[in-house]
Amino acid sequence: MLHVKNLHASVEDKAILKGINLEVKAGEVHAIMGPNGSGKSTLSSVIAGKEEYEVTDGEIFLNGENIEELSAEERAHEGVFLSFQYPVEIPGVSVTNFVKTAINETRKAKGEDEMPASAMLKKIREKAELLEIDRKFLSRSLNEGFSGGEKKRNEIFQMAMLEPKLAILDETDSGLDIDALRIVANGVNKLRSEDNAVIVITHYQRLLEYIVPDFVHVLHNGKIVKSGTKELALELEEKGYDWIKQEATV
């Protein structure tokens, strides 16, 4: 599904990613952990195609295709989805209209017709139920005045609507209370299948109790310094990141 090879990226001439190698296969869940400033959010932004980051070396393949030349929207059309840490507020545009636009623009890009209104409505209802979102919420302006939990739930709702092949959840757990965390995780788990893959970026092990990863990677100073199974996350929770940092310097 996703193959990242020796990825180097910088912003304003400051190197942030310094040789990332990562392979994510369909059906897998990968967790990327690491201390602040290790490059986690940069990695997700670079994969999603944020232009402020310059890829200085290495390649990103999605389903065997090098996506370097693709714009953010084209990557989205190919099935990449990024759940944002800080979703943007769009006053005057409802959640429903936003999601409709996103879906229909993707269909348009693929040369498909717009989704019929009735099918759209049905899907919106279904996915809203999955994330325990009530109807009033859907007619509110996108993210405007949403609580932290509502914003994250709305991100996963969009993910459910867009059905991406590769979903990257960038610190989706931050700012969530335990109930919201459960709802969000439950939503993500229901969306998992043999055909898609999920990358969970997080500081804490807590989310990984709900979304159980197949692999855990530790990012430090722009490199993956350790990979393992879900037990690695527990170890990190117990010992902190210092021992990783030390190992990395050795």
Binding site: K50, E52, S71, A72, E73, A76, A109
Partner: peptide, 11 residues
């Protein structure tokens, strides 16, 4: 903000 919208497939 622009990146957010584009990452949802909006041109």
């Amino acid at each position: 903000a622009l990146f957010y919208l584009r990452s949802r497939g909006i041109p």
